[in-house]
């Protein structure tokens, strides 16, 4: 796959629908007005342009569709996302990409696949989850462990529970703490995400894990994953950096001597464990 040039012109994309997921997070479905720049792999990212706001790197939350739409999960974090959350259906945005490598879905073939999502990290992993569910017979088992701060900010909960009832996915949810209003919903574990990994034993060489979440998540889950038997080279981490150009020129996203935008954003743990500041 050939990523476009840094100075490529964003392709126009209209907001087809906006679904508010939580107080500060919405799921946008964009209809790309021209032909899709290219198909994308789970874990790749696009650069989303908001006129007069700027551009932000975002990984799509679904898989490529025939109707030229894609879903993006947007949380209010900064200038551009604040503008986005004030946008209306029908507004025109812009898209460049896709950029980066994405999750190595072929390497997951035949294995027990564990997806570990923390907070907004569920968005890129939802893309991987949808991909793997479409090709469910390619992998031996599929488990999603998803942790959110509290029940009210757990994203896609109903959808995930529905998927789990089909039997093709093992779903484990956890929240950092329970809030008063949600105590009547004892559908998930209470505790940090790594607590779900306690006692889990996987077959080394025949298992792999894909992790995406806030920076702190990586440091506290890797030891648990290694203890569970996942090999260093089978732990795939989607790293967050400030990717401004997407093609290895602007130098904001360096991880050691590698670039998150073109060598990543998905890295094997074994490849980056010795790089200071990578995690």
């Amino acid at each position: 796959m050939h990523a476009p040039e840094f100075d490529s012109v964003p392709v126009p994309a209209r907001i087809q629908s906006i679904r508010q997921l939580t107080a500060d997070t919405s799921l946008f479905r964009l209809k790309v007005e021209e032909k899709l720049p290219s198909t994308f792999l789970p874990g790749q990212f696009i650069q989303l342009s908001v006129p007069a706001g700027g551009e932000i790197p975002i990984s799509p939350a679904d898989v490529p569709s025939d109707d030229g739409t894609m879903e993006l999960c947007i949380r209010r974090f900064g200038h551009v996302t604040s503008l986005l959350l004030r946008a209306k259906e029908g507004d025109r945005l812009g898209i460049r990409g896709p950029f980066g490598n994405g999750f190595p879905v072929d390497a997951m073939s035949g294995k027990d696949v564990l997806l570990l999502a923390g907070g907004l990290g569920i968005a890129p992993l939802r893309s991987l989850l949808f991909h793997l569910l479409r090709h469910r017979s390619d992998v031996r088992s599929l488990t999603l462990m998803y942790g959110a701060r509290e029940p009210a900010v757990m994203l896609f909960k109903t959808e995930l529970l529905d998927l789990a009832t089909t039997g093709s996915l093992r779903l484990l949810l956890t929240v950092d703490f329970l809030t008063e209003t949600c105590q009547t919903e004892p559908t998930c574990n209470v505790g940090l995400l790594p607590t779900l990994l306690k006692g889990v034993q996987l077959e080394p060489g025949n298992s792999c894990a894909a992790v995406c979440g806030p920076p702190a998540l990586y440091r506290c889950t890797i030891d648990e994953l290694l203890l569970a038997g996942v090999a260093e080279g089978d732990i795939y981490l989607s790293l967050e950096r400030r990717m401004k150009c997407g093609v290895g020129l602007c130098c904001h996203c360096a991880v050691g001597q590698l670039f998150c935008c073109c060598n990543g954003p998905v890295f094997r743990y074994g490849d980056i464990k010795d790089i200071p500041g990578a995690l």
């Binding site: 342009s49 006129p51 007069a52 706001g53 700027g54 551009e55 401004k244 150009c245 020129l249 602007c250 130098c251 904001h252």
Partner: peptide, 9 residues
């Protein structure tokens, strides 16, 4: 040559 990318309305 590091550069930032900004947009002004």
């Amino acid at each position: 040559y590091c550069f930032d990318v900004l947009e002004n309305g």
